[in-house]
């Protein structure tokens, strides 16, 4: 009798939970919503506060990953290697969403970003080139950053070289 009651209770709660857990996938063609000051970055777990540095990607399953720093997105992707349907970043000049594959990126140790990766994105190449010239930065593409995710910068050098390997 106790087993039957337990099983029934388990099934009833499971049904309620199923309803809560189930959620619809996001469309890759629409930039995801970020609640600034409330949503956490999937990579560093800090709050996402400034749109111009924020980024996101939508997986082929419709899951959304959000980041407070464009550099953090590439680091996260390298760790998890999820199939991605679309990358989204913000134009540094206007803070509007732009597609990650259409953006022009600038990388420089002289750009202060929330997690110190020093990467920002532009919609227009001329804006990117002008900013790169001002900050002594390099122009990069999405493919460049996916192939070589940026490292946090410290005076132009990578900070914190690892000793004895990383956590397995």
């Amino acid at each position: 009798m106790r087993k039957i009651i337990g099983t029934l209770l388990f099934l009833s709660v499971w049904w309620v939970m199923g309803g809560l857990v189930a959620c619809s996938g996001a469309s890759p063609d629409q930039p995801p919503k970020i609640r600034y000051g409330e949503d956490m970055c999937d990579e560093c777990k800090m709050l996402i506060s400034e749109a111009r540095f924020a980024a996101a990607y939508i997986t082929e399953n419709g899951d959304v990953r959000r980041f407070d720093d464009i550099g953090g997105m590439f680091v996260y992707h390298q760790k998890h290697m999820e199939p991605v349907a679309r990358y989204w970043v913000h134009d540094y000049k206007t803070s509007i969403w732009i597609r990650g594959d259409q953006a022009v990126y600038v990388h420089s140790p002289n750009i202060q970003t929330p997690m110190g990766y020093g990467v920002v994105a532009f919609k227009n190449r001329s804006d990117a080139e002008s900013f790169a010239s001002e900050k002594g930065g390099k122009i990069l593409t999405l493919q460049d950053l996916l192939a070589n995710p940026p490292q946090p910068m410290m005076g132009g050098k990578m900070k914190m070289p690892m000793k004895g390997g990383v956590t397995p």
């Binding site: 777990k45 000793k163 004895g164 390997g165 990383v166 956590t167």
Partner: peptide
Amino acid sequence: FIDNSPREIE
């Protein structure tokens, strides 16, 4: 909250 700490093997 703990994420990837410690990071180094030793």
